[in-house]
Design a protein around this nucleic acid. Structure first.
Length: 932
DNA sequence: GTCCTCACG
DNA sequence: GACGTACGTGAGGACG
């Protein structure tokens, strides 16, 4: 390239493009798991530019940082711009890498915006008689157009000329800054003159010529709001002009003649594109494919497949064609030699996905039927162990479970091989039953939890759902191989070939999910939460489930009979009162009796048209003096206790008279656990009858139960997060928080607070945690919504920080779609932009509640992870049995009980450091009611 | 399967 | 001015 012809300099507004591409393109991730959608858009744009529109000279210009001379003139300038989204941040550096890979100079200069550099280069080229094309759609660059400087929109690939500027600003390019100075720019915090918008601004500039002319003509204008504003805000307009006017005399970091277009080095570029996973670009540019390892190619294809191809096509007009390895061709492993080969492959890979197949979904009772392993995407096997064979297909040779476990044990314990599970707790328990202690399986990862910490509330965490979402693949379903209903067969009766297709695929999918989910952990700032809390919790919960809790069968049987007898008497009574027989358990029939036949008032119909008959409705009727609803309420209480608790618990207890719940780790939107089959997190406690059920949860012979529960943990988190001095002080001094609230909100000395007033304050405190509404509070307290509103107002007046906290959470949810606990857990709030106000407000309340409920969940989980080790280190033999959100229940020998209680309290209270103390209350007893 | 109701934090 | 309402769960019975 020589300088005989005049230069044509192409200047790419790199920073502007990144933001636009990021928001315009669907999410994509590189094989390494880094988000790359903006990088992809940028790379495409750059390669097209080189191919089609290259001038003689080319440079990409970037912003060097947030601080520029403009923030010195006017500190508010761009001050309220939010931080770049997390998915975008890692892409800034990658885009700079892209320019290097293409051998294009990337230029930035601290203290100056990209726009200033662009302006300076453009003027410099004009000065030497050259021409310039600015590749950008930024309106602030339009002031430069003319005299050989043109602009082109990189996304729409359309030129931006005089017509476009006229349309946008109503003036010629040389007058754009004067118009901008008058109208201001809210997105950049350029003040302008209040009340003057684009129409007035351009009219004024067209009439008077320049900003100064407008300002000096203002006093002579006829009296109007406009005139006043122009006079009053003249200085703001002048500052605005300095803010929008681009600097044309910035020192040029690289001389223009060094910007001549050069050919990229093909190998460097190809390697970089390969690394990013932009394979279609490689082929489009006619370059050979850089050869990676088989595993890396497969992993890359898997990760690329996570891009939704139709969206990508629609937005870019370009499609990445990728091929993941097929989900087929799996091996059935029948011999020790074959299994040893797979163990060796796993060792070589440094990781493997593991899945177990069982007879049944309860890992505590189901036996192992087979094991599958995957060592690379598409490379997986199934080891049948206890298949029975079918008429058409005999099971054939199988390893025995013991032999298989013996062969796998060293691999499972190998510290250099990562074992990847989907829902590790299940497989750990299955292995444990098969003779491989889950303490001997390490290190592990769990794709379900990897996904959960990044997407709770956004979607379910089941393997099939994750596979569809991240891999675009629908795995063979369990019911496809076992059938459903009356045709359902145990997994051991599934033909081995079919079982291999299904089971090996599950391990394969798990491995591919790991490649899709693990790399984004760091960028999403979920790694610590996952590694320090969720992952180590799996074996802790597995141990608790395995242990179970003892119940008193005789007591439960007596209770059940007692309830049955009393219900029968009540039923007769209720029928007599109603004037006819009906099913008391049927809400519909009850509603008809009460509101149609007896004509009671106060009924409300639900959306299905049926009368509502829940306890608040019935209680209203009781308060009106009616007898029947009161009897139904009493009957219902017993019916609930009998069916849900006494009878069900007797059914679910194992032969050693213990019940074993299952804790679900990835169900709730806030990070709490849930408990099912049976649910041991909702055992009655609030009524006397309920207490009798709790008494049936007992310590086994010679032992004691210890209950330890956090006092007011969510309110403490609120006092901490919202930074409310009065609440913090109350907690620090160990005051009764509801009394203190009552005193402050109602303006009464603490000593004079009666129980009713304290109850009101307590309801408000709880309401705050739930994202208070006047209606909800009024219902809770049985007062009018108007009165509730005055309470809430008084509360906010006294504690303004609470309102700020609430608004911060709403704002964060609107901006990001999720809120965070202080430990980095993401809680998605999908309805936050719903156009339906009710659903949107519901989402806002979720956003307010989730950091508190979720933060409390994080804290108790931290304690749970530390406790088993702490108990063992102290030489104690206590076992953790249950978690009920803010309570832990332990079983221990009688003589150790006080020491265990003290230790548990210590660990729990120090599980997190807040600006308020955490307080744990413990109790020791022979049964759960006594201990609580 | 879905609705209603109700047990817990 | 109407909307529909406190946050998070799981289980059992009725009903279609």
């Amino acid at each position: 390239m020589t300088q005989t012809s005049t230069p044509h300099l192409v200047l790419v507004d790199g920073s502007g493009f990144i933001f636009r591409a990021f928001h315009a393109l669907p999410p994509m991730t590189s094989p390494a798991g880094v988000p790359v959608n903006a990088v992809y858009g940028f790379t495409n744009m750059l390669s097209r530019l080189l191919r089609e529109h290259a001038g003689s000279h080319l440079a990409v210009i970037f912003d060097a940082g947030r601080h520029t001379f403009r923030s010195e003139i006017y500190p508010a300038y761009k001050a309220h711009r939010p931080e770049a989204p997390e998915e975008l941040r890692p892409q800034f550096a990658l885009v700079r890498d892209a320019t290097r890979a293409f051998n294009v100079p990337g230029i930035e200069l601290p203290g100056w915006e990209a726009d200033d550099l662009i302006a300076s280069y453009a003027r410099a080229v004009q000065a030497i008689g050259g021409t310039c094309t600015i590749v950008s759609s930024d309106k602030d660059l339009m002031q430069l157009i003319g005299n050989g400087v043109s602009m082109v929109d990189p996304m729409k690939q359309q030129p931006i000329g005089l017509a476009e500027v006229e349309k946008k600003f109503g003036v010629t390019p040389d007058k754009v800054i004067d118009v901008q100075a008058l109208m201001g720019d809210s997105s950049d915090n350029v003040p302008g003159v209040p009340g003057i918008g684009p129409k007035t601004a351009s009219a004024l500039i067209n009439e008077f010529g320049t900003l100064e002319a407008v300002l000096s003509a203002a006093p002579e204008m006829k009296k109007s709001k406009k005139r006043e504003m122009l006079i009053e805000h003249a200085e703001a307009a002048r500052i605005s002009r300095r803010l929008v006017e681009l600097a044309c005399d910035v020192p040029l970091p690289v001389a223009i003649d060094e910007l001549t277009v050069k050919e990229p080095e093909k190998e460097t570029l190809a390697a970089w594109l390969e690394n990013m996973g932009f394979r279609s670009l490689i082929s489009r540019m006619g370059m050979a494919t850089y050869a990676g390892t088989e595993a890396h190619r497969a992993a890359r294809a898997t990760a690329e497949a996570s891009v939704n191809p139709t969206e990508a096509q629609a937005d870019t007009g370009i499609s990445e064609t990728v091929t993941a390895p097929p989900y087929s061709g799996y091996e059935t492993v029948r011999t020790a030699e074959a299994l040893e080969r797979w163990v060796a492959a796993a060792r070589e890979a440094g990781l493997c996905a593991v899945d177990t197949e069982t007879d049944g979904l309860d890992p505590l009772s189901a036996g192992i039927v087979g094991i599958s392993l995957a060592t690379a995407p598409g490379k997986a096997c199934y080891v049948p162990l206890r298949h029975q064979g079918t008429l058409e297909e005999p099971a054939g040779e199988q390893l025995s479970p013991d032999d298989a476990i013996t062969l796998l044990r060293p691999l499972m314990a190998d510290a250099s091989v990562l074992k990847i599970f989907q829902n590790a707790k299940f497989d750990l328990l299955v292995f444990d039953r098969a003779g491989l202690d889950f303490t001997d399986i390490s290190p592990t990862d769990d794709t379900m939890l990897l996904s959960y910490v990044q997407s709770a509330g956004l979607h379910g965490q089941g393997m099939d759902e994750l596979s569809a979402l991240h891999l675009g693949h629908k795995p063979i379903s369990y019911t496809d191989v076992t059938g459903t209903g009356r045709n359902k067969i145990p997994f051991a009766q599934v033909a081995v070939s079919k079982a291999t297709d299904y089971a090996a695929e599950d391990a394969d999918v798990t491995l591919r999910l790991w490649y899709a989910l693990h790399p984004s952990m760091r960028a999403n700032q979920c790694l610590a939460l996952y590694e320090q809390i969720e992952r180590p919790l799996s074996p802790v919960l597995a141990e608790m489930e395995k242990t179970g809790i003892a119940i008193d069968r005789a007591a439960l049987s007596r209770l059940s009979e007692d309830f049955a007898t009393r219900m029968a008497v009540m039923e007769t009574d209720i029928h007599a009162e109603a004037g006819r027989e009906f099913n008391v358990a049927s809400p519909r029939q009850l509603g008809e009796i009460l509101f149609d036949e007896m004509g009671l008032k106060g009924g409300k119909r639900g959306k299905a048209g049926a009368w509502g008959t829940d306890s608040s409705v019935l209680q209203d009727l009781v308060d009106q003096g009616h007898a029947l609803p009161e009897k139904v309420l009493a009957w219902r209480q017993l019916a609930k206790l009998k069916s849900t608790y006494t009878d069900a618990l007797l059914r679910q207890a194992t032969t050693d008279d213990r019940v074993h719940t299952s804790f679900q780790m990835a169900i709730t939107t806030t990070g709490r656990l849930s408990s099912n089959e049976p649910n041991l997190q909702n055992i009655p406690v609030r009524t006397e009858e309920g207490t009798r059920i709790r008494q049936a949860f007992i310590a086994s012979r010679g032992k004691k139960l210890i209950s330890a529960d956090y006092s007011q943990i969510e309110l403490r988190l609120l006092a901490d997060a919202a930074d409310i001095p009065a609440l913090r002080e109350a907690f620090t001094q160990g005051q009764d928080i509801h009394t203190r609230t009552a005193s402050e909100v109602f303006g009464i000395p603490a000593e004079e607070i009666d129980s009713l007033t304290r109850r009101k304050a307590k309801a408000i405190n709880f309401g705050i945690i739930y994202g208070i509404s006047a209606f909800g509070l009024s219902k809770q307290l049985g007062i009018s919504p108007g009165e509730a509103r005055t309470y809430i107002e008084a509360y906010f007046t006294r504690y303004p920080g609470i309102r700020d906290y609430m608004e911060r959470m709403r704002e964060q949810a609107r901006e990001l779609g999720y809120v965070l606990t202080s430990f980095g857990r993401r809680c998605y709030v999908p309805g936050i932009h719903d156009k339906n106000a009710a659903r949107r407000q519901y989402a806002e309340r979720q956003a307010i509640n989730a950091p508190l409920q979720g933060g409390a969940a994080d804290i108790i989980k931290r304690a749970m992870v530390r406790l088993p080790r702490a108990i063992a280190d102290a030489g104690l033999s206590a076992r953790m049995l249950l978690q009920v959100h803010d309570e832990l229940l332990f079983e221990t020998s009688e003589d150790e009980a006080p020491r265990v209680a003290a230790l548990v309290r210590d660990i729990m209270e120090n599980a997190a450091q807040l600006s308020v103390p955490l307080v744990v209350e413990t109790g020791i007893g022979n049964n759960w009611a006594e201990a609580h």
